[in-house]
Design a protein around this nucleic acid. Sequence first.
DNA 1: ATGCCCTCGCCTCGAGGA
Length: 256
Amino acid sequence: MKLATYNVNGVNGRLEVLLRWLDEATPDVVCLQELKAADNRFPRREIENAGYSAIWHGQKSWNGVAILARGQAPIETRRGLPGDLDDSHSRYIEAAVNGIIVGCLYLPNGNPVPGPRFDYKLRWFKRLGDYAAELIELGVPVALVGDFNVMPTDLDVYKPERWRDDALFRPEVKAAFARLLDQGWTDAVRYLHPNERIYTFWKYFRNAFARDAGLRIDHFLLTPALAAGLKRAKVDKSVRAWPHTSDHAPVWIEFS
DNA sequence: ATGCCCTCGCCTCGAGGA
């Protein structure tokens, strides 16, 4: 099974790039983030014509997540993270697909630090941790996939010293990610490539992609049974160089 | 220390992104 994640930065503005990548990469299941589109603006027909069924949780202008599956319909199991009924951001959707549970998430950015946005990020991360603990206790195969907006270690940042005070790299945020690993989740890309510099995002500014000034912030967290079957992991870096591309590249893993 | 670029909205600049 080939499972992918792609922060598209606007699903309609990015539709041509998304469809081209789906055609070339043919992932079985795809988690999308930053749709930046209301539910009725999701390009369902174009994605179905590409061979994918989808569920999505949209929002006008901001956020928005979706799960796509090739040749089958994802069965929605959750929409929105538990723990705060007043949370209006569309940042989590979950489905049963291909015999596993896939949670697609877009964790808050959190900048500037300090401030209400950073507080919201920490609260959201706490809710994710509480829910992830429940999921892993179930003993069923689960993948938590998406844009976590955290670089877990110095190896995941082109210039760590420049990012120390940023919401993506603050100690509290790295600690929240580490707590997920302590629960028993496996960071799939890092597990397969323990010492490699791997980035999934490059700013649009300052020619960051050409300089390879990147960050690794898009992740796959796997329960033990899924991690045991891991075969490959790759960033489709070439997509980041396409015209009108996202600032993130698609990332995928393969497992049995 | 800041802006660099890019998205969306109802809009030709502002907010947010990371």
